[in-house]
Simulated scan of single mutants.
Amino acid sequence: MPLTIPVELYEKLAEKLGKETALEVVKVFEETQKQLEDKVVEETKKRKIELRDELRKELATKEDILLTRQEIELVRQEIETVRQELKGEIETLRQEVKGEIKVLKMWIIVLGILMVALNQNSLELILRIIFGNIR
């Protein structure tokens, strides 16, 4: 938006300095104005760039949000993988414990039979333990 000098001011300059000098003063004035406008535009652009850079450092961009969502999805997938692995390991342990319990039951039965076979009085003791004091 160029700023022009009023006609009255030009006429007074022309009266005092002459038309050519007044014209030169007006041209200098217009050039100075143009330089100032260019400087303002340049500084405005520079400030915008600085502000944008500062905001990018402080605020999350769309790319940051997208990356964060991708990372969250990866973590969810890893958690699900670990969950499935743990389920498998727990099931394996259950089967092993069931097998060990079966073995222990068999040993208890075998030891009971051996105890009764080797000591007849132990049968009476076992019956008392199972059925209480019968006498």
Rank of each mutant, 00 (worst) to 15 (best):
residue 134 I to W: 10
residue 59 L to P: 04
residue 55 L to V: 04
residue 109 I to N: 11
residue 84 Q to V: 09
residue 114 L to I: 03
residue 93 L to H: 02
residue 119 N to E: 05
residue 6 P to W: 14
residue 62 K to F: 13
residue 7 V to T: 11
residue 40 V to P: 00
residue 30 E to R: 10
residue 89 E to C: 10
residue 90 I to Q: 03
residue 111 L to Q: 10
residue 37 E to D: 06
residue 8 E to R: 05
residue 47 R to S: 14
residue 112 G to D: 04
residue 49 I to V: 11
residue 54 E to K: 08
residue 18 G to C: 00
residue 22 A to P: 00
residue 91 E to D: 08
residue 63 E to W: 03
residue 30 E to N: 11
residue 62 K to W: 09
residue 74 L to T: 14
residue 134 I to L: 11
residue 89 E to K: 15
residue 134 I to S: 12
residue 94 R to W: 04
residue 111 L to I: 15
residue 76 R to I: 12
residue 127 L to Y: 07
residue 112 G to L: 11
residue 101 I to K: 01
residue 26 V to A: 03
residue 86 L to F: 09
residue 3 L to E: 13
residue 115 M to I: 10
residue 108 I to V: 15
residue 95 Q to P: 02
residue 39 K to E: 14
residue 85 E to F: 05
residue 114 L to W: 06
residue 50 E to N: 11
residue 46 K to Y: 06
residue 49 I to T: 11
residue 133 N to L: 12
residue 121 N to L: 13
residue 127 L to N: 09
residue 121 N to H: 12
residue 26 V to E: 06
residue 6 P to E: 14
residue 126 I to H: 04
residue 98 K to Y: 07
residue 116 V to Y: 02
residue 22 A to K: 00
residue 46 K to W: 07
residue 4 T to V: 06
residue 5 I to Y: 04
residue 103 V to L: 13
residue 129 I to V: 10
residue 16 K to C: 06
residue 121 N to Y: 12
